[in-house]
Design a protein around this nucleic acid. Structure first.
Lengths: 144, 144
DNA sequence: GTGTCTGCAAAATCTTTGCAATACC
DNA sequence: GGTATTGCAAAGATTTTGCAGACAC
């Protein structure tokens, strides 16, 4: 294991601990794996990828660990345009473009939009509403 | 059946036909039912409600009919904050507020926001992107 | 040491399918 | 009449559960 990888694992362990979770090898591997998968993985895909290196980690564990991560707010769930549940491990503010013709999803980073929305809701100040996140899905056909 | 209800059924039949669908009694009942359910019903809830008046309509039919409606763009799917799939029959432009403490979802109508987003993306004019819909989910704790 | 987590296999849940009968256009 | 739709029951897919052993803290 090289230095870079060691560092990543170190950060992963810290992140688990910070969220009040016991640092088990399974959780480390799963969190590492999903952080590297940039394409909003499904349970199936996570299991496939994790199994490749760690055939002893069971599917039930993937389910349980992912549920725990969601509960802790470390990842989010969303539907693919095919209506399959998938995970979003990237917690940096960003949005999603759903391509309805190809059934694919792309991350869309746009600070200007983030600011605009945040300002709008700050000004609007909806009564009794404590906003924790604003998610935007753009449905589009690519006309390339 | 009173006049009001007859009118509604008439409109439903037209809407089915306009979407190129054969007007079957099952489709009429299901579409009528979901239009009346203002709370983003799950398959389960639709079936329950439909069954009450029409015990002969099968669950498989609900699944098939709802899939057809989604395909035709007559309804949309989304996840509850509990990660259960539900349907959104209201196609007027509007947004959703997810209350993360109570796991409930509320429709949020805001023309100003609609306009702001539409203008933003019109100006931005993202290359090769033909936007058909912009969905906003606001995650919030109600601090009432 | 204690309580949480994992792996296994079984159970429960959810969704789709094949096909014969039916109903729409 | 021809084709699409329905209902049924069974199959398939997905997710959860119970529990014994293992492990983190």
């Amino acid at each position: 294991m090289n230095k870079l990888k060691l560092l990543a694992v170190q950060e992963t362990r810290q992140r688990l601990a910070q969220n009040g979770l016991k640092v088990t090898p399974q959780r480390v591997v799963i969190l590492e794996t999903i952080m590297q998968m940039k394409n909003h993985p499904t349970v199936e895909q996570i299991y496939e990828r994790v199994s490749a290196d760690h055939p002893n980690i069971s599917l039930a564990t993937i389910y349980k660990v992912m549920a725990t991560f969601v509960e802790k707010g470390m990842v989010q769930t969303m539907l693919t345009s095919n209506d399959i549940k998938m995970y979003e491990p990237n917690l940096e503010p960003h949005f999603h473009i759903y391509y309805t013709d190809s059934n694919s999803i792309e991350d869309y980073f746009d600070d200007e939009l983030s600011d605009m929305l945040n300002n709008y809701f700050r000004k609007k100040n909806i009564a009794n509403l404590n906003i924790s996140d604003i998610r935007v899905h753009i449905l589009a056909k690519s006309t390339a």
